[in-house]
Write a protein that binds this DNA or RNA. Sequence first.
DNA 1: CCAAAAACTTGATTCATTCCAGAAGACCGG
DNA 2: CCGGTCTTCTGGAATGAATCAAGTTTTTGG
Lengths: 142, 142
Amino acid sequence: MTSDFEAQLRAVSLRVTRPRLAVLTALRDHPHVDTDTVIALVRADHPTVSHQAVYDVLRALTDAGLVRRIQPSGATARYESRVGDNHHHVVCRSCGAIADVDCAVGDAPCLTASDDHGFTVDEAEVVYWGTCPDCATERTCQ
Amino acid sequence: MTSDFEAQLRAVSLRVTRPRLAVLTALRDHPHVDTDTVIALVRADHPTVSHQAVYDVLRALTDAGLVRRIQPSGATARYESRVGDNHHHVVCRSCGAIADVDCAVGDAPCLTASDDHGFTVDEAEVVYWGTCPDCATERTCQ
DNA sequence: CCAAAAACTTGATTCATTCCAGAAGACCGG
DNA sequence: CCGGTCTTCTGGAATGAATCAAGTTTTTGG
C-alpha cells in the first residue's frame, strides 16, 4: 500500500518522504478532511511532522494532481485522494459533512456551458448544498 | 433605483441604511467583487463607512437572499446581486476573472444527484474552471 | 417627537495560511 | 556503500481575511 503511494509520487517526479506518504495514507483513510485534521492524523504516526510540512505536502500533491482540494464557501480547505474521475460533492449546510456524488449524466455532465464568454473551460466543479440525514432528523446536530 | 433597493430591504424586514444602499449599489454596478473592493466602492460615496459595517451588511444581505456569496477555491469571498435565477460562473485560473453562465440544461441542470447518500439537496452550485480570453492570448496576464 | 431595537464605529483578536532561515533528508553519480 | 547537491522539513514569526466586543449612532413604530 505504501509502495503504491511511492510509485504515485515517483510518477510525478516528487521525492518520496515520510510526511508525503503519511499524508497520502491519511487522505486514503479519511476523505474530505481539513488541513488541521490531516496534521493530527499524520502526527498520530509521525509526531515530529511540522504543520508547515503538511501545508507544503498538500500543495505539492495538489499541484501534481495526486490529491484534490475542495473548498466549499465559508469553510476551510479540505482534501481528498480520489482524483481523475470528475466526481462531485454534497455538503451539509448544518454540520459541514461531505459525501461523494458521481456525475448524474455521463462523465462530464455540466462541462458544456451555455455561453462561455470566450473562456476555455477545462473543468466543471459541482457542489450540491443540502442537509445530511443526521441533521435532517435531529435538530441538535453540532 | 435607490428606491428599488429600499423596497428590497423592506421586503426582507431589514432596515434601510446608507451603508446597505451603498453596498447594493456597488454590487449592481460591479458584479463578482471581493469584500475589499466593496469597501472601496462604498467609501467612494460614503468615506466614513467602516469595514466592519460592510462585513455586517454583506452577511445580512446574504442571509436575506438579496446577494449571493461566491467563493472559488483558493480565493477570497466575492459577492453579486444577481440572485434567484440559479446561474453559475466561469472562473479564470490565471487571473481570477469571473463571468456569469446560464444553466446549460433548463433551470436546474445538475440538481438531481445520481446518489444523494440520503442528503436533502436544495441547490446545485457549478463552477467552471478555465482560462479567460485575455489570459489565453497573452501569457503575461497578471 | 420619543423610546426601543437594530445597525454602525473603532479597535482588538482569532485563525487559516504563508514566509523565512537554517537543518535534515532524498537521490544521483561514483 | 558514500559524499555532494538540491529538495524538503523544522520551528517560529508574520500576513491578511474575517470575527468579536463595547459603546455610540441611527432607524422606525407609536
